[in-house]
Each structure stands twice: as structure tokens, then as C-alpha cells.
Computed example of a mutant assay.
Amino acid sequence: MDTETTVTPLGGDVYEIDTRMAGYAGITAGYLILSDRPCLVEPGTAGSAPVVQRALTELGVGPADLASVVVTHIHLDHAGGVGDIAEMYPQAEVVVHEKGARHLAAPERLMRSARMVYGDVLDTLFGELKPTDAARIRAVQDTGAIDLGGGRRLESYYSPGHAKHHVGLMDSQTGDLYVGDAAGIYVPETADVRPATPPPDFDLETALRSLAKFQSLQPQRLLFAHYGPVSEVTDTLERSAEELRVWVDAVKDARDEGLDLDHAAAMVQERTKDRYRMTKEITDPEAIEKYEILNGTVSNVAGIMHALDRHA
């Protein structure tokens, strides 16, 4: 596994950490807000925990210094390392939406369902989510706030659609909005925005309402977990909504033709490929594999089909 630590200062005492999911660079980003009460947003997978620990050490944050760990949602590429990080930083409070809190305290059911989906590659991709002492978990509801010290706050906003336990996080000082997966994935090499619509929670109208909520917050910058900072806020959120609609319409057509999942995915991939520069410009096999692991067409189509079946 490639465990080289990559830390990028983003201004406003915010540092992007490449958390190296499965050893890949540029696939999962965590963020350290180095305020009076240091806060780690999106610790990444269990396998990422040593990488994150090295980055925090480089930035002068020791075991007793980290005040909070916050996740946008409990999918394992975002929250799989929470238990490990909680052990490494025993003073840190863990903040998550109330619909995800019990899974961080007792992750057995979450891990069982993840193993059904990923099989043996689960260990390579994510590792094992360890339980966190429930007394250290703070569950937020539709809105909440994390004290960053010095009057600075990280404000949480419930933003389901990608997952029913998803929150966006707004920094009161910088105007940064941590979007998790609610705005899809951003590919920095090509500036593409692709939807993230995995089963079982994806819902189009809910996701679009969350994007509208993000627009209404008027953030200065979007910080994607996949991957990095984006300053073109309005345009990017509009593109995210457009991509969701395009994919859902394409899957509806495939479903109307009675196609099974694999054939539907092939049709959707063919129909949408010209929307993304990455299709033409990213030719390195490892990079292609990386983005397929992160944002596979089959997984997206399966999530949309599940949503369509639910509404039918």
C-alpha cells in the first residue's frame, strides 16, 4: 500500500489530507481544521488511519489535541476509520447524524451488509470499522454545531438523498462547505462532476432538495471528499443536479426496455460518456480502475433502479 502522506494547505487554517483509500492517491480527502479546537472532517477508511495520524503529527496535532472528528455520513470510505482515530485521539468527540450514530457504536450490521456487497475486497478497500464508545458520539439532527474555538463553528445541515444519514458542514469563518457525497464526485484532473447514487438510500427528489439547500447557504467554496476544493460553487452545484437528472432519465429508459442491471449500466455508460472529459483524457489503467472503484457505473445504476422500484 502507498502510505506516503500528502498534506495540502487550503488557507483559513484548513489542510487537505490525502487519506489514500486502498493505497490510491487522489481518491479520498480528509480535512483538518487547525483552529483553537482542532477538528478532523472525513477520516476515511480504517486502512487510512495511520496515514491520517502521520498527517496530524506533521501538523502538530498530538494524541491529546484533537477536539472533534466529524463525518458527513457513515459509508466506509468516509467513516471506516472513526473507531481507529477515536482510539488514537482519546479526547476527540465524534460527531455524526443521528441516523448513523448507532452504527458507529455497534458497527456489526453495517460491516455485514458491506461484506455482502464487496466480498473479499472489503478488507483491501476499507478494512474493519471498529466500534466507538457511545459516550463519545454526539448525534446531530437537522442542524447542529461543532465548536472550533475562538467563536468559529462548523455548522451541520441534514442533506439526505445520497444517504439517509448525510450532513453537509459549513465553516462559519471560511464559508467552506464540506459536501461529502451529496454533490457527487469531483475529478480535479478534468473538472468533471459525476453523480454518486449507490443503493439503498438514493432518492432523486431528496438529493435535489439537498443541493438546493447547499445553494441557499451561499458557500465560498466546496470541499469534496472525492476530491478536493472547488471555488465555482453555483456552477458546480447546478452541474451536480443536472447530472443526477440525466442519469435517472437514462436508467428509466433502460428499465422501460426491460434491461437487466449489467445491460442497463452498459447503456447508461454509453449514453453519458461524452459528458465527461475523464472518459477521453484519463487513459492510465490504474487511474481508470481507481475511479471505477470510487464511482462505478453499475453501483450508480443499481441505486437508481432501487429508487425507481421503490417509487413504482
Rank of each mutant, 00 (worst) to 15 (best):
V140F: 15
A163Y: 09
Q141D: 13
P160W: 04
L122M: 09
G144W: 13
D123F: 04
T124Y: 15
A114Y: 10
Q141N: 14
V95Y: 11
R136V: 00
D142H: 11
F126T: 02
R115G: 07
L154C: 04
G149I: 00
T124C: 09
Y158C: 00
A105C: 01
K99M: 10
T132F: 05
H165D: 15
G144T: 01
M111K: 02
S159N: 04
G161E: 02
L125Y: 11
A145V: 03
L104S: 07
M111T: 01
V95R: 08
R109W: 14
V95W: 13
D120P: 08
S159V: 02
L148G: 04
L110F: 08
D142Y: 06
L122H: 11
D142R: 10
A134V: 03
L129C: 09
G161R: 00
A106C: 13
L148Y: 04
S113P: 06
L110P: 09
G150T: 01
H103V: 03
V117W: 13
I146S: 03
R109A: 14
K164C: 10
Y118G: 00
D120L: 10
L125F: 10
Y157V: 00
E98M: 09
S159K: 04
H165Y: 14
V121T: 07
L122R: 04
H166D: 12
H103I: 02
T132S: 07
E155S: 08
H162F: 14
L104Q: 06
K164I: 03
L129F: 01
H103W: 13
R138P: 11
M116Y: 12
R102P: 14
R112V: 02
L104M: 06
A163F: 05
D142A: 05
L104T: 03
A134S: 11
A145D: 14
E98K: 12
A135E: 13
L125W: 10
Y158H: 13
T132K: 03
E98C: 10
H162M: 09
Y158K: 06
R102V: 07
G161Q: 00
H165Q: 15
A145C: 10
L125V: 01
H97K: 06
A106D: 15
L125A: 02
L125D: 05
V167C: 12
T124A: 15
A163Q: 09
E98Q: 14
S156P: 10
A105G: 08
K130R: 15
Y118L: 07
A105H: 01
G100N: 05
G168K: 13
E155H: 06
V167E: 12
R153F: 14
A106I: 02
R153Q: 15
G100L: 01
A139M: 03
